[in-house]
Design a protein around this nucleic acid. Structure first.
Lengths: 221, 221, 221, 221
DNA sequence: GATGAATGAGATTTCATTCAT
DNA sequence: AATGAATGAAATCTCATTCAT
């Protein structure tokens, strides 16, 4: 994990954060340790030693150990929940004229797969610590409800009205999609250490399963 | 959490464990605290104080804090993974004559819902700690691969041969079912604190989604 | 270390002590552990476990850990300092008619060699603990000054008057003999673990060295 | 025990160690307590309190209690075994032209007497702990065999060839000298608390005893 | 006599945090 | 900004001893 990686990891709204070498080193080692052993089982002195800085230096930048955690986790939550639409595929899909659930789903999934693969440690930290820190829970809920939920509900309602989606309650459908995708991501990229052999094939199968589950079959039209 | 509850929680193979009052109190408070704050953030002195015993008493029964964790987690893993087929519904389903995927699924889901509702704290501890303790990971993997996986694969293959299931690879189907059910359980019973309003309705919807996803439609026969 | 050995080890004035099996087991394991790790670094629970008795049982026989130590050490001091004149050689030597320094010395040395070889662990414990326990120091000093010192001084004075010994102060001579013999015993039987090859030859050389050091040469007469 | 004393006590190869005031205080109190009560019976909290530092401070400098012991004992072993030839007497003796066993012995003894008187506590600690710590035993053996034994054997062989020493095996002679001198040192400076009245006279008598024991009499030539 | 669960004081060690330099 | 010695509270664990059975 070099400085540039840390920098893009923690940037918000495309604005890069300024990082000294030492600060970057601290963050890098904090991320590694939090991911591997958990926040509570990681000591600041260990981070300092691994980062090659004095113990006091950490506290110069982050008033407390918890602040260090939040400095890492907060940008992570935002990026995990709110896809950053830089890639081509998702840009096309958002073009409202030609939207189809399948394409939307495919774009979303590939985008999140890419994100999780690139930010495995960060995602791991968020998952591991969310149960223990109310601040993280609230940041998560808050971000989801304001940044994503309304847009997604709107889009799904549209599809429902166009007869392209079943008549189940939106929330049930959404939970179904999210828990299936999240289950896949966690299982394949966070829990397992072995790389996946037929990644694309697996993803396509999952998409079909979800679409079938939603009675959505564009091929039958 | 009274002694009787702890006792059934930790029993293995139906053999009840012998617990003194103090030991039960220690386990009860350990479970509560591990679930709420995590293993690493829970101190033995806190457990002792809450359980009304001297700190030394904990270490008389469990040589180390980690032993205390494992005493709780090991029976939990087994029971979480291997359903204990005591209830009526699942007994009927296992009757090989009339097995149908839908009934099997329904029985499995209700059985696990019941288990998770009854053992929320324990399930929470397993989930939270599995990432940090290799022993737990291995116990989990081991138990799953030896006790459950072979039987389930066999049953699904049967269904496939009878044309009652799609032709996707068994592992993909299995992961789909498990991650959907687990996603539901986690979301509804572990993460959320609010009780569910239309529990049965939600479960039935999920069953239909999964069945549709698997191209399994007994109604069309 | 069986019960009979412990019994003779702790007997005083030829009167055997009564020992139950448990008591003997406790003493045996206490001796082993005190000798190997030292009194302070040995725990009573370890002794209990090794002896196959309950922790409380030790305290039923010995009110405190220190009492257990003293029960072992006190008879040991007495026997280490005051030779128990059972063997033939020393009996003959004490016959006043024919006493010669060389014979006296030889008898004394062989007698103590025998004792130390038989009671290595006990001697080790005394040596190791004497620095830390005033009670042991005093028992040692007391025993030496009352039971041995006067007799030895008297004998040496006799020899001096007969011209069979140098004219140095008795105390200097005595210290020379004792520290040489003790140095030998410690070095050969307590510190070293390897058995000695030419034991008798070594002892005879030491005797000659001491005699020469004391200007005592009966052969020149 | 002031900082300067600790400094020279722990220096190796004439290179002084850097000591903060606190570190010196910790070492001073550790030495006092280890010497008086033994390592196992001394608590770090006692040392901290007496040294006027927080308990954590000890562990900042010495990762474990055992490290603290070894920091004290290791330089001590070296200096106890390997005389540091700073004083006049020993320098002269090492001048090969005029070496005589008597002078060599006298220089060695006075040098070690001086050392033991100056470093009583340290010597006491080494003696008391050597039985319990394999590390110390090995450091001792190692240091003796590599730094001292070969030189001394060579010198004694020379003397033997010149007919200035008996024909006993070198090892026997060496053990005789060392155990006599060590016995004297231990007895007079470590075990006894009272100061010696006629120190020089006692030492000279001991020298004569040893020389006579070795059949070495340069006056008769 | 024997047990062993229970105690609570205290041992070693860890760790987030402070602060003088 | 950076250091790292120092802190002291708290963490895990040990242990001699007691006591009800």
């Amino acid at each position: 994990m070099d400085k540039a990686y840390i920098q893009q990891l923690l940037e918000l709204d495309g604005e890069s954060v300024k990082l000294t070498e030492k600060k970057a080193a601290i963050l890098a080692k904090a991320i590694e340790n939090f991911a591997e052993k958990g926040y509570a089982a990681t000591s600041t002195s260990e981070i300092a030693k691994q980062a090659g800085v004095a113990e006091g230096t950490i506290f110069r930048h982050y008033p407390s150990k918890k602040d260090l955690l939040m400095a890492i986790v907060k940008p992570g939550i935002l990026k995990l929940i709110v896809p950053y639409f830089a890639d081509q595929m998702i840009q096309e899909v958002l073009d409202p004229e030609k939207v189809e659930l399948e394409e939307l789903l495919r774009a979303f999934i590939y985008n999140r797969v890419k994100f999780v693969k690139k930010n495995t440690l960060m995602v791991r930290i968020i998952l591991q610590e969310i149960a223990f820190h109310q601040e993280i829970q609230e940041a998560f809920k808050q971000t989801f409800l304001t940044k994503i939920y309304p847009k997604v509900v709107e889009k799904l309602k549209e599809l429902q009205q166009e007869g392209k989606l079943n008549e189940y309650p939106i929330d049930t459908t959404l939970r179904f999609i999210l828990s299936t995708v999240m289950g896949f991501l966690l299982h394949r990229y966070i829990l397992l250490s072995e790389p996946i052999k037929n990644e694309e094939q697996e993803i396509e199968q999952m998409i079909q399963l979800i679409l079938d589950g939603l009675h959505y079959n564009h091929r039958s039209e």
